[in-house]
Write a protein that binds this DNA or RNA. Structure first.
Lengths: 343, 343
DNA sequence: CTGAAAGCGCTTACAG
DNA sequence: CTGAAAGCGCTTACAG
């Protein structure tokens, strides 16, 4: 592995000039730059990230902190962020916060140790509502951070307007003429950090009331955001006497579970039951699922791009919360109600 | 951010002693060690990874190179590797090789630049059959590498015995009494690197022949490893006159697609069609899918542990290929054939 | 436009 | 058991 000194020797310049030439600094003559580049190429020289970081104080590496690695959603966010960072010349180091019983301990260790090693220039924190103690530690680090998933005071964040998303989905069903609209929300376990299930449920109830429909607690069930969970909850719901004509699930996977449950009960979707989800799951197309897409790959990309902006010298120092895009995608799982559902 | 010098001053020792004490070297007196630890704690000192790496030549960071980020399978592998590395005190930097038209270009850039920055001590390469040119570059780097997914000469690898897996699945169907056994393999696009589809198909055919059954080309179709793809291919297959009594899919997702296709055609699984997949997909349980589990999280963990072993000073210098575990999980999608399938 | 030199913050023989 | 000192391989004011 060639060093900068070897390049300098071969090009007959100082290491300072090699550094400047390869960094693309303007203050290098064309002829010198050429010689240096040629020397670097012939030696296969690539600057040591470690030495460069120590000298410059910049690592060109970003830390991505995420819980729930493993679900398609977070994998998509990771993918989007990685692509944008790579395009910007940055590496990505992953910090997965396992959602185990030792979550709190690991989370503290992450903030006390891992993030303080100066391995990265900045962080992206996904679906983490940072505590005051954590924010304090981050302030001490003096490194930019972008939060994804919900607003955090004093931090640049990108968040999904969960109320807006749930309202859009509910109003879609209302506008089709539905009045008995069920809701599949998220379990208690998913309330941590940004309280996504509660926000979605509240907006659903408010949209119903705004349309003159009183929410029926019997039509509201919580599950674990999975196909399996949505299937079970829907089976129970549709087995009861007050059967809804439509169902709004807080995730696409639960919505798919609902579709499968309806089928197994001999109900047709959308004729007997309209179903709408949230997310933009890759299986949505296959199941003809109407959904509110929240573009997870784009979320990752936007988080990375926002962070890169903060890292640029002329970044505005303000830390604002920006809304993420979302969009109703109407497919075949929703339609006008066809009279009273069969008993 | 405290430096080692500040800790040294506070503890009234040299930086050398601080370094030794905090690294847990034996040659430090208990009293000194105590003072240093106390000083470090009170200052909130964490050694700079960058400085430590430059001085020691070790980064305590591992590079994970993977294509296909985004599918549940690779997310699971990543998760398993991350956990094992974190437990060993290592960070994980991700290098995603996007599967775009610019794949070749990006792949070359990865080997020419990204991996040469000395940001990591070693690599895990997932599902990449390294070319001779790439192996040469890696040899130049002088860093350990563990390949996951298939054998590579001269490299420590962990690979799934694709022939064994396919044989196990096929023999399971044969042992139930099936003779008309279809196969859903992988498209041409999936043949790159380790030729997984071809190996599985060959073993399937061989298992049939060994049981005295001549493979029927009309019962073999290729798809793209997804639910959607498996669904379409199965629809075509079951629409034809020579309907099979069983189907072996080269992935669980295709197997699930096959189950859904059978249902839509009014066929019962397993009574009219037995289905077996490969992978251990999280939805397998829900769909009652019989499968050959290949434990992706364990694969990630094993790759990381193997690499950590190679990194230890007393590592044996041999580069062998080890087999990954797999296991037939019998659920409800396979059963003995119930007479001739309906026409 | 270029070079000499300091410095980034650690680790590690070496000597005692 | 501990310290002084060299060195890891770069970057960047500073001076010219």
């Amino acid at each position: 592995m060639a060093t900068i000194q070897q390049v300098a020797d071969l090009a007959r310049v100082s290491t300072a000039t090699v550094s400047r030439a390869l960094a693309g600094k303007p203050s290098v003559s064309a002829a010198t730059r050429e010689r240096v580049e040629e020397a670097a190429r012939s030696l296969g020289y690539v600057a040591s990230a470690t030495a460069s970081s120590l000298a410059s104080g910049r690592t060109r590496n970003i830390g991505m902190v995420m819980p729930y690695l493993g679900s398609w959603f977070y994998a998509a966010v990771l993918k989007g962020a990685h692509r944008a960072l790579a395009d910007g010349g940055y590496d990505l180091t992953l910090y997965h916060l396992e959602d185990t019983t030792r979550h709190a301990e690991r989370r503290q260790r992450l903030f006390d140790e891992f993030l303080r090693r100066k391995r990265v220039d900045a962080f992206i924190a996904v679906s983490l509502e940072l505590s005051d103690a954590e924010l304090e530690r981050i302030a001490l680090l003096g490194k930019p951070i972008v939060g994804l998933g919900g607003p955090i005071p004093g931090v640049t964040t990108l968040s999904l307007d969960d109320a807006g998303v749930a309202t859009l989905a509910t109003e879609h069903l209302l506008s089709l003429g539905h009045r008995e609209i069920a809701h599949l929300g998220g379990d208690e376990a998913f309330e941590q950090d940004f309280h996504v299930p509660a926000k979605r449920r509240a907006a659903y109830e408010q949209a119903l009331r705004a349309a003159g429909v009183e929410p029926d607690p019997r039509l509201i069930k919580n599950a674990d955001f999975t196909i399996q969970g949505g299937y079970q909850a829907t089976l129970q719901m549709l087995g009861a006497p007050q059967r809804p004509t439509a169902l709004f699930a807080a995730s696409d996977e639960m919505a798919i579970g609902a579709i499968l449950a309806a089928r197994d009960l001999g109900l047709r979707v959308p004729e007997d039951l309209s179903v709408v989800g949230i997310d933009g799951h890759e299986l949505g197309e296959f199941f003809g699922l109407t959904t509110v897409d929240q573009f997870p790959v784009v979320q990752g990309r936007m988080a990375a791009e926002t962070l890169l902006e903060e890292l640029s010298p002329d970044a505005p120092g303000d830390h604002v919360n920006r809304d993420l895009p979302y969009e109703l995608v109407v497919r075949k799982s929703t339609a006008v109600p066809s009279g009273r559902p069969r008993e």
